Amino acid sequence: MTADADVRAWWQALGLPGLIDLHVHFLPERMERRVWHHFDNGGPLMGDGWRIEYRWPVRERLARLREMGVAAFPALAYAHKPGMAADLNAWTLDFARRTPECIPSATFFPEPGVLDYVTRALADGVKIFKVHLQVGAFDPRAPELDAVWGTLAETGTPVVVHASSVPVPGGCVGVEPISGVLRRHPRLRVVVAHLGMPEYDDFFDLARRYERVVLDTTMTFTDFAERGMPFPIRLKEELRVLGLAGKVVLGSDFPTIPHTYAHQLYALERLGMGDDWLRSVCWQNAQGMV
């Protein structure tokens, strides 16, 4: 598979009804411009940055996802300072209401009132949350968040957590901060972004130890990732076992990726894990989560 035009035939050949991608971003226009500026110019949170493959208007990006058969995806806005999460949540909920394929998503930040707006978001139909510990530069073990994590554990609501040192170290990343949360809330449904790249071993261990911790494939195994943060061959068999056990899900980081969407799927296929593994990762494992 070499182009996005091939994606639909690819998943159809697997006997799937489409793809579920749990790591997609749509942001308010002003925020999106600022995020893309960081990708274009690099900086302390981005290293050298990279060229965004899908630097397109929203309508065109949605059309591409639909053409490829991405049947479900969240918007995954994330707060990086106090006072912005509630407004972002209102935006992402409205976006989901206007976009049938979009899974309602929300975010949070350690601040006064955080439990109130998280509870309100759940009541409004949010199915998945996103926090970015590198960009947000906050400790997930902050006292203000303890009741939030507890609520999400009780409701079984997944949280996509950027917890590893990719693209560069910063914030409260690494396995220990989020491990501290899981020790207090072992039933929390954490989706570890990027398979925990580059701290693969640590986050694979987390997935082994906690029933509801899963890993998303975002940018992993692609030519871009393999050049700088290659996946350890010693973990390949464990990746196969975890995927078949429901603990690996498809993620892409669309649209802010330096390659085509099809290349992410090709990178998964060339691992040689087999069709059952691909079906599990690209549809079945996420189907029961959101």
Rank of each mutant, 00 (worst) to 15 (best):
D4I: 14
V7A: 03
W11G: 09
A13T: 12
G15H: 13
P17Q: 10
L19R: 07
I20D: 04
D21Q: 14
L22A: 06
H23R: 07
V24Y: 08
F26Q: 12
F26Y: 15
L27Y: 11
P28W: 10
V35F: 01
W36P: 01
D40Y: 12
P44C: 08
L45F: 10
R51T: 15
Y54T: 10
E60T: 09
R61M: 13
A63S: 11
A63Q: 09
R66N: 07
M68F: 12
A72K: 13
A72T: 05
F73C: 09
A75S: 15
L76N: 05
H80L: 00
P82R: 00
P82H: 05
A85K: 00
D87V: 01
L88K: 02
A90N: 05
F95I: 10
A96L: 11
R97E: 15
C102W: 02
C102N: 13
P104S: 07
A106T: 03
T107G: 00
E111S: 01
Y117E: 00
V118L: 02
T119A: 12
A121Y: 02
L122Q: 03
A123T: 12
A123E: 15
D124K: 11
V126H: 03
K127M: 11
K130W: 01
Q134P: 02
P140S: 05
R141V: 08
E144C: 09
W149C: 01
G150E: 13
T151D: 05
G156F: 06
T157Q: 07
T157W: 04
H162E: 09
P167Q: 02
V168R: 04
G174M: 01
V175N: 04
G180V: 05
G180Y: 03
R183P: 06
H185S: 06
H185E: 08
L188R: 08
V190F: 12
V192H: 03
V192F: 04
A193S: 14
G196D: 01
M197E: 09
Y200P: 10
D201M: 09
D205N: 05
D205A: 12
A207Q: 09
Y210P: 02
R212Y: 12
L215K: 02
T220F: 00
T222N: 06
T222Q: 02
G228E: 13
M229V: 14
P230N: 10
P232G: 13
K236M: 15
R240M: 11
L242R: 08
G243T: 10
L250Q: 03
G251T: 07
D253S: 09
F254W: 05
T256Y: 10
P258M: 13
P258D: 13
T260G: 14
H263I: 09
Y266G: 13
A267T: 10
R270N: 07
L271G: 04
L271F: 06
G272Y: 12
D275C: 11
W277F: 11
L278F: 13
R279W: 07
S280W: 08
V281D: 04
A286D: 06
M289K: 13
M289S: 08
V290C: 15
